[in-house]
Simulated scan of single mutants.
Amino acid sequence: MSTIAVIGAGSWGTAFALHLARLGHSVRLWARDPALATDMARRRANAVYLPDLILPDGVTAVGRLGEALSNASFVVCTVPSHGVRVVFRAAAPRLATNAVLVSGTKGLETGSLLRVSEVIRDEVGAAHAVVVLSGPSFAAEVARGLPAAVCVASDDSAAVERVQAEFRGPGLRLYASTDVVGVEIGGALKNVIAIAAGVVEGLGLGANAMAALITRGLVEISRLACALGGRRETLAGLSGLGDLVLTCTGELSRNHHVGVELGKGRPLTDILAEMKMVAEGVNTTVAAVELGVRHGVELPIASQMADVLAGRKPARLAVEELMARPQRNEME
Rank of each mutant, 00 (worst) to 15 (best):
T3S: 14
L20C: 08
G125D: 00
L172R: 04
A15F: 08
E161F: 00
S303G: 11
R115F: 05
H19G: 07
T110R: 15
G202T: 11
G202I: 05
P170S: 15
A310M: 02
A140Y: 10
V260F: 06
V293N: 07
L174H: 03
V130N: 00
G242Q: 10
D179W: 08
L29F: 07
G296Y: 14
S103Y: 14
V297Q: 08
L20G: 02
V297D: 07
L113I: 06
R121A: 13
M40C: 14
A148K: 15
G311E: 10
E161W: 00
E290L: 15
A279V: 05
L218P: 00
E67Q: 14
R325P: 06
S26T: 11
L238H: 08
D155K: 08
D52S: 08
I193T: 08
L213S: 13
G311D: 13
V86R: 12
G202C: 09
V282Q: 04
E332Q: 10
S134I: 04
A196V: 01
G229H: 13
A158Y: 09
P267Q: 11
L50Y: 08
L262H: 02
R94A: 02
V102S: 09
R42E: 15
V289I: 04
A306E: 15
A140K: 15
I120A: 03
L50C: 04
V131P: 04
V297I: 09
V86A: 15
T234K: 05
C226H: 03
L114T: 01
V62N: 08
D122S: 11
V124A: 05
T249A: 13
G259W: 11
V319S: 01
L108D: 12
L291D: 15
R266E: 14
G182C: 09
I7H: 02
G187D: 08
V116K: 07
R144P: 06
V260T: 03
V76I: 10
I54M: 05
R115S: 04
M40H: 06
L101H: 05
R64H: 11
T285H: 09
A273H: 13
A211T: 14
D39R: 10
S222G: 10
V293I: 02
A176R: 12
A306I: 03
K190I: 02
G198R: 04
R42F: 15
A148E: 14
T38Y: 05
L29S: 07
K264M: 12
A41E: 15
A47L: 11
V152N: 12
N255R: 01
T3M: 07
A96P: 14
D122V: 00
L244W: 12
K106S: 09
A91K: 03
R223L: 02
T38I: 04
V286N: 06
A279E: 09
R121S: 08
E320K: 01
L299W: 09
A5Q: 00
S2C: 06
V163S: 02
S73K: 05
L50H: 06
H82D: 09
A196E: 09
R266I: 03
V282L: 09
R121D: 00
V116E: 05
A324N: 15
T105A: 10
A153W: 07
R162D: 03
R316I: 07
A188C: 11
A21Q: 00
V86K: 09
V183Q: 11
G281L: 04
V84G: 09
L241G: 04
F138P: 15
P80Q: 06
P80T: 07
V142M: 12
S70D: 15
R232W: 11
P51E: 13
T97H: 03
G182V: 01
P93E: 12
S222E: 14
L272N: 12
A129I: 00
P267I: 02
